[in-house]
Design a protein around this nucleic acid. Sequence first.
DNA 1: TTAAATTTGTCATTTAATGACAAGTTAAAT
DNA 2: ATTTAACTTGTCATTAAATGACAAATTTAA
Lengths: 108, 108
Amino acid sequence: MKATFGEYIRQLRTNKGLTLTELAALLKLDSANLSKIENGKREFDEKRLDKLANAFELDFEKLKVEYFGDQFAKKMYAYNCSSETLMVVEEKVNYLKSINVKQAEIKF
Amino acid sequence: MKATFGEYIRQLRTNKGLTLTELAALLKLDSANLSKIENGKREFDEKRLDKLANAFELDFEKLKVEYFGDQFAKKMYAYNCSSETLMVVEEKVNYLKSINVKQAEIKF
DNA sequence: TTAAATTTGTCATTTAATGACAAGTTAAAT
DNA sequence: ATTTAACTTGTCATTAAATGACAAATTTAA
């Protein structure tokens, strides 16, 4: 998906023929703020990801990819992080997993 | 670098034979809070990345990779994001570059 | 055993995120 | 052209999260 998260939501919404007010109601937020979200002027609150998934019957795992992918990309772009950053993320995720495994082993 | 950002700082610090109090002074923060940072109980504030780079004569670009890599990895791990997320990040960074989104204010 | 170093707990303060609503603009329909 | 719904923008009070500060407890090393 080559778009910001805001653009992604707008696409979903317009495809389904919903107005800002209608979708905002489903997401339990103000239509003015949803407008800002779609236009990249506010962040979508991760607490509403489940409501978004329900509204459009989306696979939640894929939605997370879209959402967090957007978040990380914005930061990387804003701070001009080299693409090497992503390799390091992969390493570090594995490291965190390995530590967690060790902790779990100690428990039992 | 296979470690959390806190572990990374601790390594730098102990290699140089500094105490928490000494490094904390260089970073303009409380030694108790630096301890929490090294132990992963608080976040290192990005406003201090420059001070950290100075304290240890680090390449700033590499430090950013380490720092943001850590941040993203923690989130990915906490939310169990699939590794596909990183592909999406790459796509989205390119997308942001292509549409030349106005850069956020960068503090360093 | 004692002094320095580190860790932990707590809380007031600062800072950022959010909700809410008014006012403005755009777009479509008649 | 006027009206109406849809959308955008601006602002501000409130809420929630991050941070600073310091006391107290624990660990480490001399």
